[in-house]
Design a protein around this nucleic acid. Structure first.
Lengths: 357, 357
DNA sequence: CCGATTGATTGAATCGATTCAATCAAGCGA
DNA sequence: TCGCTTGATTGAATCGATTCAATCAATCGG
């Protein structure tokens, strides 16, 4: 009994009930060649004589054969998949980055597994394990807290590039210099003649926000001034428009400086709204600068001066670095890249004010 | 020579040069059990006596073993991956949908391969082939034009649910009723007493835009009026803020109706901007309604009345349907789900106007 | 006209985990 | 103490494609 039909379970159902997912073997049978030849036409077409090739390709088309990537991968072929783990798919920042990554990956024939750690290190680890199990070719990661050690990645043979996270010298990463961005913004305001500047910050749990605060102070120090006298900090729990409104109201209660720099554009929009309601004009009464340069900034009622992050570049550079890492042999040198943001000056920051320091 | 070390190429390097990616075999060797037992501790822990289990688990931990998903899949285990092919990752709509899909998939222990067809049917086919090759468990697709036939998907054993696309009765799909959405919007304007309504449409190549136009006309017919007399259509090539501005300028040239319904919120924002510049007040002089209810709509200078699509629901319902399809045996019935959008009334549409029809 | 060379094709081993039948050991009743 | 049941563990076959050595055929020079 056991030997009567030892290996044709699949074939039977394939022959009788339905088409069944065609295997390479089926193609070979239909084309009247061996399995090896079919494989060759797919992977080394030059080794196969044209007539045979057409024969095989016809059979493939006829059966609608799609080679099993798992079997292929098992034999050692490099996977065509890379992983991307971000903190929050919902954020426009990561969305744009993901877009760039997807595009860059596509250019070299790869697809992307996208997932979100939701800022949870435990979930992050779980996701990395899944990616390792999938034997993806490599992965891009924005760590929730500290990323797994480089040893973890090399142990799992999982090339990694950290995204928007300044790591150590023994790993690859690409980050944006938030300190520099804020520095540009505040320097701009100081150059316009503002003597006191408010910094509306989002949650300080975010490295980015802390960096932007640092940059603001640095710009003031650069100008030979005292941050303690020039900077007014307002810290919000969130970073939406509503938080910006609250921040502006807090400022209104204590006296609004002539310039406000916000940790991101949403906060700036909120601040704008609240200040307008209070009868203040932008930029005549208050100069306003945001951060991120979201799509909307240029189209806001008063076009918003903002710091543009090279998100696109972030995604594509990181992907390129990853491919370098993936394809590079063991002689791969870890590289760290810091991208510089750019200040986009629009109407909201206004013109130089008369010196009344 | 050939037989001297027939199978230990990997083992050698593993033993001598570096750690090497540990295989199940290595775990078995370290734990002093057979491969089968290791597999059992992973997949049928109850079949293995507790002491052996700890032994094996220790070995797994010690080696940092992560089972090869490809080998697993090859043996027939269901993949933990689903595919998602959208038209454009960049758009907020798909971003939000992707987010919902990712979340729903995660809840049942799956990850998502995200990719964008960029509205190109050729690329769409290529992506679907990749997904089929990866033997993903199933896939969600927003077709660029007509999707591949249900036969294609069943041939490749690739369960599919069409996303935001009303397909046929022999496939699964989830879509939003754009006709109904526009109908709600225009009915609202008519009920407020507006006798003439402009419809600012985006590119008519988009099914959505055409449907919204239909809905606008339907609402007028519902009210017993003649669309030819009531509706003024303005068609734009794009659907950004700039296009909205152009549309408004065209309206201004011919005389602006007392109400404007826009194919999406961006167009509405542009219209708002242009009308304000022309000295018209919203909603006092012109009532304005958008579509999509993007994050910004509520926070716009004059909070925008808009039609909210249940995008989140779209993503999660589609994913649930896909899982039903994937896990369901052949007795799976194809299901079609149409989600209803909702009108969110805010200030921009104003209050009832005095009857001056 | 024969041996050698080139090139196309085939066959079999292989990747790593699963699974089922087979084995092995322990425990139990008689 | 022997046979039998029960349950843990092992071994071998298997999934589907790749690849390399082996085979087979044809062509060419001598």
């Amino acid at each position: 009994m056991r030997n009567a039909e030892p290996k044709s379970r699949r074939s039977i159902s394939s022959g009788s009930t339905g088409p069944g997912r065609p295997r390479l073997k089926d193609v070979a049978a239909l084309a009247g060649v061996s399995a090896g030849t079919v494989s060759h036409t797919l992977n080394h077409p030059e080794r196969v004589v044209p007539e045979t090739r057409t024969l095989v390709l016809d059979a493939i088309r006829q059966l609608g054969f799609v080679p099993n990537a798992h079997a292929r991968a098992l034999k050692g072929a490099a996977s065509q998949v890379i992983g991307l783990v971000v903190l929050d798919i919902g954020s426009p920042f990561f969305m744009e980055a993901a877009r760039a990554v997807e595009r860059s990956a596509r250019e070299v024939g790869h697809v992307v597994i996208l997932s979100s750690s939701d800022d949870d290190p435990v979930r992050e680890t779980a996701l990395l394990r899944i990616l390792a199990a999938q034997r993806v070719r490599g992965c891009l990661l924005t760590p929730a807290e500290a990323p797994p050690s480089p040893a973890w990645f090399s142990r799992h043979r999982l090339p990694v590039v950290l995204l928007d996270y300044p790591g150590g010298a023994t790993e690859c990463w690409v980050a944006v210099d938030h300190v520099a961005g804020a520095r540009l913004a505040v320097r701009h305001l100081l150059e316009l003649g503002h003597a006191r500047v408010a910094f509306v910050s989002g949650p300080v749990a975010l490295r980015q926000m802390v960096d932007r605060g640092k940059g603001a102070r640095a710009a003031i120090v650069d100008a030979g001034l005292d941050p303690g006298e020039v900077l007014v900090e307002v810290i919000q729990e969130g970073f939406g428009i509503a938080d910006g409104i609250v921040a502006a109201e807090r400022l209104l209660a204590t006296g609004v400086p002539s310039a406000v720099f916000c940790g991101n554009d949403m906060l700036a929009f909120g601040v704008y709204r609240a200040l307008r309601r209070a009868g203040l004009r932008i930029p005549d009464d208050v100069a306003l600068v945001g951060y991120d340069d979201v799509d909307f900034a240029a189209d806001w009622a008063v076009p918003l001066t903002s710091v543009r992050q090279p998100i696109d570049q972030l995604g594509s550079v990181a992907t390129q670095l990853l491919f370098e890492h993936m394809t590079g042999q063991s002689e791969h040198m870890h590289r760290q890249i810091v991208l510089q943001p750019e200040l986009v000056v629009r109407e909201s920051s206004g013109r130089p004010i008369d010196g009344r320091s």
